[in-house]
């Protein structure tokens, strides 16, 4: 179910003294099975753009077409569309509303009007997909969860609606390194095993580097880049100008490159950089 955005404009608080234009003439297309990273500084318009994908925002001008359905169409079945394009929000405290984990995950499928045995099966499947043990966590109180577990519950709640596309909006914010790694592992698995289209929004280039194949960079409401990761990350100066911090590993590689090491700064994998350094050092020693 491709997502097509053409000529999209949006102003926040339109018609008030606080009016602020957040999206300027955005065009993009996201195809089935892709892993797309959307990155930009805070308040660059990433979230507003992404919330157009599941019709939480309706375009003020331009068009958003999801699987052939125009979201601005008054007759469009937006409820069905929102089940197909799942959205996980930044802060899990807003999306968890039942008292226990299992009940919360069942919320979506119950809204779809599924019979209770189907709902139960969906909950079980979704919990296993995010690595929450059914017996341990089903009746666990939401308040007793850690930050990482809360986020996994939120993802499961969306997965239980069987989405074909998953929008993940800055879901690792505030997590410690271990919690973050767990979440990233879940996302990778969802894509490789279930072929779910992933739209991963973040302000951390490190995470985008780890997950995405294609990267869209948003700068003050405009698309600055929309290209393969390697082509985008190859332009560090431009990214810095936009206000993005380069991954630390990348700045390290750039520094070494400038010091004459035979190393490609766009290499983003730790092991590749390690190998390049080892090779460079060996070469140097051979030359001597």
């Amino acid at each position: 179910m491709p997502i097509e955005v053409t000529g999209l404009n949006y102003s926040y608080k339109k018609g008030t003294p606080f009016e602020k234009k957040v999206l300027y003439d955005v065009h993009l297309r996201i195809n089935d099975g892709e892993v797309v990273g959307i990155i930009g500084p805070t308040q660059s318009g990433k979230t507003t753009l992404a919330q157009h994908f599941n019709a939480l925002f309706i375009p003020q001008s331009g068009k958003v077409i999801v699987n052939g359905i125009n979201t601005a169409d008054k007759k469009a079945d937006l409820v069905k569309l929102r089940h197909e394009v799942g959205y996980v929000f930044q802060n899990p405290d807003y999306q968890l509303f039942a008292s226990c984990v299992g009940e919360d995950i069942a919320f979506g499928p119950r809204n779809q009007g599924l019979p209770s045995e189907d709902v139960a099966a969906r909950v079980k499947e979704a919990m296993s997909q995010v690595g929450l043990d059914y017996d341990t966590f089903y009746s666990r109180d939401i308040f007793a969860l850690s930050g990482g577990q809360k986020r996994r519950t939120a993802i499961a709640g969306v997965l239980a609606c069987k989405p074909k596309t998953l929008v993940l909006d800055d879901i690792t914010a505030g997590l410690d390194p271990r919690g973050r790694d767990e979440i990233l592992a879940v996302v990778k698995r969802l894509h490789s095993e279930k072929q779910i289209t992933i739209i991963y929004i973040s302000n951390s280039m490190d995470e985008i580097a780890e997950l995405a194949e294609r990267v869209i960079v948003i700068d003050q409401g405009r698309i600055a880049f929309d290209d393969l990761k390697i082509n985008v990350f190859n332009q560090p100066e431009k990214l810095r100008d936009i206000g993005l911090e380069l991954p630390e590993l990348m700045t390290l590689a750039i520094d070494l490159h400038q010091q004459g090491f035979n190393i490609d700064p766009a290499l983003l994998k730790f092991d590749e950089i390690l190998q390049s350094i080892l090779d460079s050092l060996q070469e140097g020693q051979v030359r001597e």
Binding site: Q51, N54, L56, V79, R82, H83, G86, Y87, F89, N91, Y94, Q95, F97, F107, G108, N111, Q112, G157, V158, C161
Partner: peptide
């Protein structure tokens, strides 16, 4: 935020 989160899950 809450209304959006619930709409996103089919309310």
């Amino acid at each position: 935020k809450i209304v959006k989160a619930q709409m996103a899950r089919g309310v």
